[in-house]
Computed example of a mutant assay.
Amino acid sequence: MEGIERLLPSLIIDSNYRIVAANQTAKNMFGEIIGKECYKVLYNLETPCYQRGIKCPVYGKESGFDIVDLEFESYLRGYGVIPWGGMFYESVVNITNINNIRSSFIDNLTQLYNRKFMLNFLEKTHNLWKRYKQPYTLLFIDLDNLKEINDNYGHTAGDEALIKVALCIRAHTRSSDTAARWGGDEFLMVLPNTSIEYGEKVALRIIKCVSGIQFFTKLSVSIGASQPSDNDKSYSEVLARADKALYQAKQSGKSKVAVLKADGLSYLIDIKEESA
């Protein structure tokens, strides 16, 4: 959590919008805030955020990361539901230069989140799994044959292929999901509160979307999927399984989904078989 946790004041809020707990960053920033309404402390508003069109975990039971613009100020925030009946969290920081802050967590080419942001998010997501058994599915996505595209059509074409794949990923990302460019030709998706079966369906939809892209050459992606288990000490073990599954998908002929479970069970799904 180094980075996000130290940067963002984080609060726990009850169903009446009152702050019931805060991390040390929040206490240092705001002083004595326990019992005060979150919208007054964080944004200096007189009414709850949803009345200003701002997504609110208390009101809408939503989770996510976004940027809030209020008059001459902008805020980067994370928010969501905690599985303790009627409890919610919100993390927020005032942004003075939105372009600079965006570059710290957004991939400039694809406009998805970047690897640094995803590492922080993965740790937060895995901690929710360890504490409250909130499941999540990881999808490791690789654009097949990017080197050949670069060699045959140039790096500009390779960049365009990555952008088009990112659009397919974004088109199949729910508001609660998070997608990032992991690096090079690889992408990573985190699907919270999701069964592996649903993750497989999302992966197949992405493969189908990419296969339909009009381009200089046929585009395809391979995808590896996995979920956490009680024996995983950190998200890195889940990530390693998804990475290994991705390798199996690519070795099997590409444009396929491979699933690797914690018990060692693995299987492949071919989009052609799925459509048959």
Rank of each mutant, 00 (worst) to 15 (best):
C56N: 11
K244L: 10
L138W: 09
R131S: 13
A203D: 04
S211D: 09
G253Q: 01
L128F: 15
L260W: 11
D270M: 03
E71I: 08
H155V: 06
S176G: 07
A225E: 01
E123C: 05
I223W: 00
I196L: 02
V202M: 05
T217G: 00
K147P: 04
I67N: 01
G60E: 15
W129S: 10
D69E: 07
C209T: 06
I169E: 01
E197M: 04
H172K: 10
I169H: 03
A180D: 02
E2F: 13
F65K: 14
I169A: 05
R174T: 09
I141F: 03
I206A: 06
K256H: 04
L260R: 13
K61W: 12
D69K: 14
I19C: 02
L112R: 10
L167K: 05
G212R: 06
L268V: 11
W84E: 15
I141N: 02
V238I: 04
K164A: 06
S252W: 13
E123F: 09
E237M: 04
Y43G: 06
S266L: 11
V202T: 08
K254L: 03
S103F: 08
P192E: 08
V238P: 06
I149P: 00
L146C: 00
R18A: 14
V210D: 00
S91I: 11
V20K: 13
L122A: 09
K27G: 07
N114A: 01
N120D: 09
S103M: 03
N114S: 08
D151E: 08
S234V: 12
D232N: 08
N23P: 12
A166I: 00
A242M: 01
Y43W: 07
I82E: 01
S74P: 10
A242E: 03
L260P: 14
P9G: 08
K40V: 10
H155D: 06
G85M: 13
D263T: 02
L239M: 03
L191D: 04
G183M: 12
K244F: 12
Y136P: 11
L109W: 11
E37M: 05
L146F: 05
V20Q: 10
G60P: 13
F117K: 04
G154S: 04
G158E: 08
A21H: 05
I169M: 07
Y113D: 02
V92C: 15
M87Y: 15
N100T: 14
L109C: 03
Y132N: 14
I206T: 08
A258K: 05
Y198G: 00
D177E: 02
K218D: 09
